[in-house]
Design a protein around this nucleic acid. Sequence first.
DNA 1: TTGAAAGCGCTAACAG
DNA 2: CTGTTAGCGCTTTCAA
Lengths: 351, 351
Amino acid sequence: MPDPTPGVRPTLEAVAARAGVSRATVSRVVNGGAGVRLPLVERVRRAVEELGYIPNHAARTLVTRRNGAVAVIIAEPEFRVFSDPFFEQQVRGISRELTAHDSQLVLLWVEGPGEYDRIARYLGGGHVDGALAFSVHDDDELPSIIRRMHVPTVFGGRPGWSGPHGAPAVPYVDADNRGGAREAVRHLVALGRRRIAHIAGPRDQTSAVDRLDGYRDVLMLDADPGLVAQGDFTVESGARAMAELLERRPDLDAVFAGNDLMASGALRVLRERGLRVPQDVALVGFDDMASVAEMTDPPLTTVRQDIEGMGRLMVRLLMRSIDQDGGGPGAAETAPGSVITPTELVRRASA
Amino acid sequence: MPDPTPGVRPTLEAVAARAGVSRATVSRVVNGGAGVRLPLVERVRRAVEELGYIPNHAARTLVTRRNGAVAVIIAEPEFRVFSDPFFEQQVRGISRELTAHDSQLVLLWVEGPGEYDRIARYLGGGHVDGALAFSVHDDDELPSIIRRMHVPTVFGGRPGWSGPHGAPAVPYVDADNRGGAREAVRHLVALGRRRIAHIAGPRDQTSAVDRLDGYRDVLMLDADPGLVAQGDFTVESGARAMAELLERRPDLDAVFAGNDLMASGALRVLRERGLRVPQDVALVGFDDMASVAEMTDPPLTTVRQDIEGMGRLMVRLLMRSIDQDGGGPGAAETAPGSVITPTELVRRASA
DNA sequence: TTGAAAGCGCTAACAG
DNA sequence: CTGTTAGCGCTTTCAA
C-alpha cells in the first residue's frame, strides 16, 4: 500500500479521473467489478493502487445503510467478563466469524443500569448492523431496549425470561446443557453407580437449571432430593456442597458437578476425606475447561461444549437476520430460529 | 425514548418540519444549542423527543470527519489477551474514559501477521479517529502501518524499538517500572539485606528490562551477576529461577522478583527448602496482582501500578492528539509526549 | 439569530 | 457495458 499524500485522501472521483472513467465504474470495480470489461477493471485497479485509494466508510454507510459493524454488549455486573476463559473463547469465535463477514466488533461495555441510556442511543443511532448480547436475567432492560430500537440481536445462552408461549422470544445460541447432563449421568449409571449426587449451579442461570433438569431426566424417580446440593459455579462452593452431600449421604458413589470448577472443589474434599476417585466416588464435571479439567488429579471426565463454535454461530445467525431485514419495515420482527449446539462427553480418569 | 415507526427513522428534516424551523436550526440545537433563542430550543427539543430522533452517525461523520470511535488493537500471539487480569483492567480504564469522551471502542483482534493487511485497510479507511496498541516488539509491523496510515495512536507500554535519538518515536503510557524496582530494592536494603537477588522477566519485554535496570541502579557495584536469574513472568519460571539462585548463592537473604507470579513461584520453593519468609529471605514482587499478592502465605510485599489509570491516560493522550490533528496535513506528525505513571510500594508480610 | 444552499464521498437507478 | 444523475442525512458557510 503506497503512502498517500498526508491529510488528503483520494476519493472515488480522483480514481475515476486518473483511470479516465466515471465514478460509477470505479465504484463497480471497487465492489467486486461485476459487469465491467476486463481492461477497464485493470485500469481502475491500477489507479486505485497508485493513489492508495481506500473507500470512505461513512459515505458508503450513508447510502447502503450498512456499516459493517456489530456490537458485542457486555454487562459488567453479571460477568467476570474478560477473566472468564469461557467468554474469551466465545469472543474469539465471534471475532473470527465477524472478520469472515467483513464486519467489525464494537465493544459495548455496560457498567451498570445507569448506562442503558447510552447503549440505547448507540444502538438506535444506527452505528451497528446488529448486536450480540449474553445471557440476561429476568429483570434485564436490555431485551426491551433492543426491541424498541429494532436492532437485530442474537443472545448467547438461553435467556431467563420467556415469551407468550414459554419459549424465549429472541434468537439465541446455547449448548445442549440438558442433553449433556443426561449423557454425563447416563455414563455414571452405565458405570454401575446408583447413588449419584448433583452439585447444581446458581438457580438464576439457565445453564445451571438445564443441567439439573438433565440430571433429573435420567434419574427419574430415583432422584433423591438429598442428593442435590446447591453451589454457585465457584471452586469453593463445590467444596462446600461436597462436604454437605457427604454429611447427608455418606454412601453416595458418584457426583455430577454442574461445572468443572465445582468439580475440582468437590474433588479436593473427597480426597481430604480419604475417598478414592473414581474407585469410591466417580466424578463428572461440565465445560471441559482446559485449565481445570486436565490439571486435576485425576483428570476430570467432563462434558465439552464448543464454545468458540457457539460464538461463530451467534454471528452467522445475526448475519442472516440482518440480511433479511433489508425487506423494509416489519422484517425485523421475524426472529430466526435459535440454535442448540451439541455437547460431547470427554472421558478421563475421574469417572 | 418513544418507539419510532419501525423501519423509518426520523431525520433532521422531519424534526425541522415538526418544529417549524429549518434543518440548520435543528442541527444547532442537537449539537448543544449555542446561538439559538431559548423558545426555539425548547420547541426543537420537544420535536426531537416526540419523534424519537437520533442523529445518523454516518451522515455526521461524512461531513465532520469524526467518527467517535477508537480502535483497540490486540495482537493475539503476544497476548494472553482477555484472561490476563492486567489487560482486563487496562481495557476497563480505556472503556470508561472513552465513554466520557463519547467515543466507542472498536476491538481489532489480530490473529497473526497475515491479518495486518486487513488492519491497515481498516485504519486507513477512516473508520476510527485513532488507535490504541500495546507493547510491540522490535520486528512488529504495526508501528510502520500506523505511520503510513496517519492514524493518531498511543501505545500501552514502552515499545521495544526506538527512534533516531534512542527514545521511542511514538507516544506511549507506561508505569515507572525502573523507579518502582528501585523502590523495591531500596526497601530490601533498608531492611538490612545485603545479598539481594533478582528474578528477571523476559529480555524482550521493556517492562522486564526496566525492572532489572532499576535493581541494578540501587545495587551499583554490589550487583553480583550470580544473583540475577532469568524467568519469563510465569509462576513456574519463578520457581525454577529461585532454585537456581539458591544453588548458586545459598547465602542470599532477599529476592526481588520481576512480577508477582514469579514471586509466588519463588515463595513455594523457598518454603519447600525450609527457608522462612521474611526471616531468612525477604521477598518483594511487582504488579500487586490481587489474585496473587494477597493470597500467598505470607502475603507479598510488592510494587503497585495504577493499571486502570494507565488505560484512561492512554485515551486522554490520544484524544489530545486527535484534537490537534484537525489542523490539516502534517499536524499528525507532532507526537504528544509520553507519560510515565508512578508506582507505589505496598508493604505486606513478605518483606 | 435564523434560513438557504452547498456539499461530504459514495451507491444505485436509469439511460444510452 | 458505461456514464449521468439523484440523493443518503448531516454540518456549515454565507446572506438575510
